[in-house]
Design a protein around this nucleic acid. Structure first.
Lengths: 150, 150, 150, 150
DNA sequence: TTTT
DNA sequence: TTTT
């Protein structure tokens, strides 16, 4: 069975990142990303929902805010559910980040991202480094947490 | 303004590709793509809607059918509208292909993809090669055709 | 500091994969990949050297052979050294795989890849799942093994 | 025949871009790109040679200089030749850009990239737009110009 | 629900 | 050193 799923986006946060935790205490960060189209005529922006887990999510929540430019590498995720009110089937495509690059931004020197400027965190990196007894080395997939509020 | 938007997916067609034409006669092909997750526990497949324009779309419509494996390179597209019945705002994320690779498939030799097997078409390639007077050298963007039925 | 490095290639193995081990027993698999150009006029093929570590490398070595089609996701790696004979500076760009998709191939049913056909292994996945006491959970980077023979 | 070839890199120019022209007057821009490794221990930077053709190349040559951050999307290219002195076979892997994003940089306000900051040019875009009689609508591939000095 |  |  052939399967491959890779997305790379760069744009600006449409809102401050929001950090939540699953029942098991796994951090998950959500934010919106606006990606401007080049050479577009009518609609000019694409809006996406991004989520980032664990250390990667925490780093984004700690350092990024509405308007900041960011590069996101991840995979497309499809989810479907039944609408409570109408009973209709609904679905949604969003992005699960597994690597992120903080882009330089406007050099507004507000201190929160001071000194070096950029920064980068990769989810797999986070996992790879956990040799201790933290929650990171539990063998979990995002799919275990479909009950989280999104 | 930083902006980047690139998606690469490989999976199988969930339905036969459908070829339609805009009012101006531009061909646009639509199909569904199922991408299996690796190492998933609960949900196991992601489903996406793909569209491909002009020559690229025609080639897919001519050679591919439900179940066929394909590699799609393109960009994520966001669209929003107001639901007629409920008046609610709705939105959707799908993929506009600009390059496609026909994957070898199951070697079932049904003739529709016989002889060579593979094949590949790129939308930009199609555009670049058009030196004649066909509709391909009109300077149009997909955005001009938001009125098409999808 | 902005940095991003992502490569995705699909083509055919130019030779049987070769599996070696570092002094510390880390497996590393090397193979050549031929990627045909589309719409080319003169030169028609690009040739690349790929390496894959640990479980991912072992899987490739176990299941793939010269001629097999494969999809490789990884990063570009630059290496430089001084040529022993001429004393000149030399360098090389190759690819370190961190995810691989076995493509269906020619359905020649030779048994070595029988039954299911495809298959997929990701290095990060391999690392993430290792909760035991194997060598996989040592915190190592490929950079530690620059002394390996390549 | 399965074939796919996509590279996405972000880093900084290692030298001012150099603009040359083929005998037929096609502009080609060359520059070096330094991409820092994350989490590396020994070697810390990967260096690549990039080339960009036509309008895309001209834009880079006009707006970018040594040190500037840039995002490059393109394809890997393999070239081989015989070394004149030693008679040995040599080869090289570099990147042909077909899309570029100017990253914000350090906001050093030197005027050459003033006002807006960013900018983006795509080679396929350039080709697609050429409806006139310029050299852009000649049907040429980079492969025609292997004689250029690189 | 939308960023520069 | 080169694959289909």
């Amino acid at each position: 069975m052939v399967s491959f799923n890779r997305v790379i986006l760069a744009g600006n946060l449409t809102r401050d990142p929001e950090l939540r935790f699953t029942n098991d205490g796994i951090p998950v960060c959500s934010f919106g990303l606006a990606v401007n189209r080049r050479r577009s005529k009518s609609e000019e922006v694409d809006f996406f929902d991004i989520s980032a887990w664990r250390e990667l999510g925490e780093t984004i929540a700690n350092y990024k805010k509405k308007g900041d430019p960011i590069l996101v590498e991840g995979r497309l995720q499809f989810r479907s559910w039944e609408d409570r009110e109408s009973g209709q089937k609904r679905s949604k495509v969003d992005v699960v980040a597994d690597n992120v690059q903080f882009l330089g931004g406007r050099g507004d020197g507000d201190g929160s991202n001071g000194g070096g400027g950029g920064g980068q965190r990769s989810r797999s990196g986070a996992g790879a480094r956990s040799g201790g007894g933290g929650r990171d080395d539990v063998d979990l997939n995002e799919e275990d947490f479909d009950d989280i509020p999104f």
